[in-house]
Amino acid sequence: MARLAAFDMDGTLLMPNHLLGEETVRTLNRLRDERQITLAFATGRHVLEMRHVLSKLSLEAFLITGNGTRIHSTQGDLLHRQDLSPEAAQRVIHGQWDTQASMHVFNDTGWLTEFEVGEMLNAHVYSGFSPKIVDVKRIPADEVTKICFCGLHDDLLRLKIQLDEALGGRAFLCFSAVDCLEVLPVGCNKGAALNVLSKHLGLTMKDCMAFGDAMNDREMLSSVGHGLIMGNAMAQLKEDLPHLPVIGHCNKQAVSHYLTHWLDTPNLTYSPE
């Protein structure tokens, strides 16, 4: 039986309106109260934003944020951190890239960009998290957690080729959504971070279940004892992990639907709603 459950946020726990449904919140509380399962949110979002989310929900959970760059305990203590190398951060921030995508830099102070983000703020309606408009070229390269590029997918695919060539293995690149390409520290991903957290709790990855929808969830889903892919997941994720079960869509709170079945009728065959 699972003893630790890890959840991606966007496209997984969150509905398309970027809110958590009431059924989802009730089910998460059932996992904790009825089965004593430890909860972890594994997300690309910043810890400052996730702390605000948890405070509104009154949920006790570990936080894996920044796609694995930070792990915090249920009491808010920092358990693990990993930053981009200064060389990689310097190269990306000061590079000349053939792209229309906007660049967003993250560190412990928050979200930093030169761009007016407009509709991007819709994704943060639950928390009100917003960027600081700064000259990103003045950000200290030794304080960068990750860098994101947001734009059209085909443009980002071309950009990924440029970044791979320029960085030469000094960073890990992945898509956290079809319109978001992330530059992360080498070896940094949600799966690696969940492994650190599992060991901290005296567990193994086989004791974990995890839910996700994007390529930044790939390592986590493939390494746990019970990985589940959302019906609305990126096609590449489903293609890369064809052996994992696919549940329903986030717009129908499919995580709650699956877990309710798992809690109440585990002897019956599950079928997505």
Score class of each variant (00 low, 15 high):
T145M: 11
L163I: 06
Q162A: 06
D154P: 00
R170G: 01
D135M: 10
R138Y: 00
A166P: 09
D142N: 12
Y126S: 12
R170L: 10
V134Y: 12
E116L: 10
A141D: 08
E114K: 06
F172V: 01
A166Y: 04
I139C: 08
D135G: 09
H153N: 13
V178M: 05
G151P: 02
R138L: 15
S127R: 01
A123Q: 10
G128T: 02
E165K: 13
K146T: 09
Y126P: 00
R138F: 02
E182I: 13
V178G: 01
C148N: 15
C180L: 13
E119A: 12
V125C: 14
V178F: 03
K160W: 02
V183F: 04
L157Y: 00
L152A: 13
L184C: 11
D179M: 05
K137H: 14
I133K: 15
A123I: 00
V125L: 13
P140H: 05
V136W: 12
L157G: 00
P185I: 08
I133H: 14
S130N: 11
H153D: 11
D179E: 06
Y126F: 15
G168I: 02
S130K: 15
L173E: 04
R138M: 13
C174L: 12
L184F: 09
K146V: 06
R170D: 13
G169F: 02
L159E: 10
A141F: 12
L112N: 14
F175Q: 03
V134G: 08
L152K: 14
G187P: 11
A177E: 10
D135V: 12
R138T: 14
M120D: 12
L173M: 03
L181W: 01
S130V: 11
E143V: 10
T145H: 12
G128P: 04
V183H: 02
G187D: 08
G168P: 02
I161G: 13
F175T: 02
F175S: 01
P131M: 06
Q162T: 06
Q162N: 05
V117I: 12
A177R: 10
F115S: 15
E116I: 05
D179A: 03
V144T: 02
G168T: 04
N122A: 15
L112K: 10
C148Y: 09
L121R: 03
G187A: 05
G187E: 08
L173V: 04
R158D: 14
C180H: 05
N122S: 14
L112G: 13
D179F: 05
F172H: 12
G118C: 04
D179N: 09
V117C: 07
I139G: 06
L157V: 13
K160H: 10
L167Q: 01
V144W: 01
E165C: 12
A166G: 08
L159I: 14
I161N: 15
G151Q: 01
L167M: 02
L157R: 05
P140F: 05
V144Q: 01
E165P: 00
L121Q: 07
S176W: 07
E116H: 12
N122Q: 15
A166H: 09
S127I: 09
G118D: 15
L121C: 02
I139F: 03
E119K: 06
S127Q: 03
K132Y: 13
E143N: 15
K137D: 04
Q162V: 05
D155R: 07
P185S: 07
P140V: 06
A177G: 07
F115D: 15
C174D: 14
D142P: 07
I147V: 08
I139M: 09
S176E: 05
A141I: 11
